[in-house]
């Protein structure tokens, strides 16, 4: 148990203290957005499956998603999905197509472009969703 806690602490402090700038931040963002999306996905599969297993429950599940905090969470979820996708494509390109681009300079520039592109794709979606949120207050 003590070794487990020591191992958790070593890994987590490494995540935080490592000073890899853009590469480090995109690694962290990729993991956070991925795990966040997975958490929602697991819940989402089960709540949608109620239409078959327990149809009377589905309305209640959807009612929760219509609450303002969940609508805000949904806007965040869309950012996670967009960032994880754009950054994933960058990793796939650098791994499978052009491994020579795994240099610090290229990677830093690519990481900045990835974030900029993700925000650009996310803003119109966030705008539409936020407008819907306000309309249903």
């Amino acid at each position: 148990m003590t070794t487990l806690i020591a191992s958790l602490r070593t890994t987590l402090s490494g995540y935080i203290k490592y000073r890899g700038r853009e590469g480090h931040y995109s690694f962290l963002l990729h993991r956070i957005t991925g795990l966040g999306t997975l958490l929602f996905l697991a819940i989402h599969i089960v709540d949608t499956a109620t239409v078959y297993w327990m149809p009377e429950l589905y309305d209640h599940a959807i009612a929760i998603y219509r609450l303002p905090p969940f609508l805000l969470g949904e806007i965040g979820l869309v950012f996670c999905v967009i960032y994880h996708g754009v950054n994933g494509l960058r990793i796939i390109y650098q791994d499978m197509v052009k491994p020579s681009s795994w240099t610090i300079h290229t990677q830093r520039r690519a990481a900045r472009w990835t974030l900029a592109l993700s925000i650009l794709f996310w803003l119109p979606a966030a705008f539409v969703m936020f407008r819907t949120l306000l309309a249903h207050l």
């Binding site: 697991a42 599969i45 499956a49 239409v51 297993w53 149809p55």
Partner: peptide, 19 residues
């Protein structure tokens, strides 16, 4: 979880069970 989801997609929404 995949089984739960796949059954729902294949079986569809059972609206006839609703009152």
């Amino acid at each position: 979880i995949s089984f739960i989801g796949a059954m729902a997609i294949i079986g569809g929404a059972r609206t006839h069970l609703l009152e």
